[in-house]
Write a protein that binds this DNA or RNA. Structure first.
Lengths: 125, 125
DNA sequence: CTACTTGCAAAGATTTTGCACCTCA
DNA sequence: TGAGGTGCAAAATCTTTGCAAGTAG
C-alpha cells in the first residue's frame, strides 16, 4: 500500500503557501521555496501543489492563458474577486449558497464563487 | 477609428458556439467550423472567441491543465457544474447572489459560480 | 531495504503573435 | 482603396512526465 512521505520539499511548499496571502502561482512558489531548498525543481512544486489540492488543503484559481494561482485554505470557506485589469485576487466572504436544482445525482464537492471586475486601483488609471 | 468587420469566419464561429450546448473548447469549434470553412485557422478561432468574450457574448470556463471551454450566453444568467471525473459541464440555475462585502471600490462586472463534484454517470463507475 | 520522491530535461498542450496576403465596407 | 482580418507557422507559456538517482520509514 502506498504511504505518503513527509519530505523537506513538501514541507517547504506547504509552508510557502501557508505564509502568504497573495495567491501565488507555481513559479512564484518555486522561487520562494528555493531560498530554503535551492535545488528544488519546478516539477516537484507542481507535483506537491497538485497533491495539496487533491488533499483538500489548497484550492486553485484559474484564468485563461495565465498561470494557475494557488490558495491555502485558511479556516473559513471563502471566495475570490479577480481584477480583470491587473490580475489581483482578493478574498471575499460569501454567505453559504442556497444550492438549487442540480442535475440529477450530481454530487457536489465544492462550490466556487468568483467575482470578476475591476479593482479600485485600476479604476483610477 | 476601428470598425469591427463582419466576416465569414466570425459568423461561422458564432454560429457554431450558438448552436451547441456542449460548452466546447477552441479545438472542437475549429473542427466544427472547418466543415463550412475548410481553411479557417485555429488562430482565427481563438481571436474570434476572445472577441466574443470581450464583447460579453460568450463566457469561459477554465480548468487547470485543460483547454478553456466557451459558452454562448443563452438568455438567462446561468452557472455551471463541472464533473471532476469526466469533465462534463452542466448548466445550473442559481438565484441572484446576495453580494456581500467586496473590497473597497471593487467594481463587479460578472459573478461566476461553479459547482465542482462528480456527476451521476461517474458515480456508478 | 524498498517503495515513494525528486531533479532534470524533454515532451505536451494550449494559446498567442508576427507578418505577408486578402477582403470587407 | 485601406484598415482590419486571416492563414500559417513559429514562439511563448504553462504543466506534465519518463527515468535514473536519492531518501524517508
Amino acid at each position: 500500500m502506498t504511504v505518503v512521505r513527509n519530505t523537506r520539499q513538501k514541507q517547504a511548499v506547504l509552508q510557502a503557501l501557508r505564509t502568504t496571502r497573495t495567491h501565488p502561482d507555481a513559479a512564484w512558489i518555486h522561487t520562494e521555496v528555493r531560498r530554503e531548498l535551492p535545488s528544488i525543481s519546478l516539477g516537484t512544486v507542481y507535483r506537491t501543489l497538485e497533491a495539496l489540492v487533491q488533499g483538500g488543503v489548497a484550492l486553485t484559481i484559474e484564468r485563461a492563458g495565465q498561470a494557475t494561482r494557488y490558495d491555502f485554505k485558511h479556516g473559513e470557506h471563502h471566495h475570490h474577486a479577480v481584477c480583470q485589469s491587473c490580475g489581483a485576487i482578493f478574498d471575499i466572504e460569501v454567505p453559504r449558497l442556497p444550492v438549487a436544482a442540480l442535475p440529477g445525482g450530481f454530487q457536489v464537492a465544492d462550490v466556487r464563487v468568483e467575482f470578476h471586475g475591476v479593482c479600485e486601483g485600476c479604476q483610477t488609471k
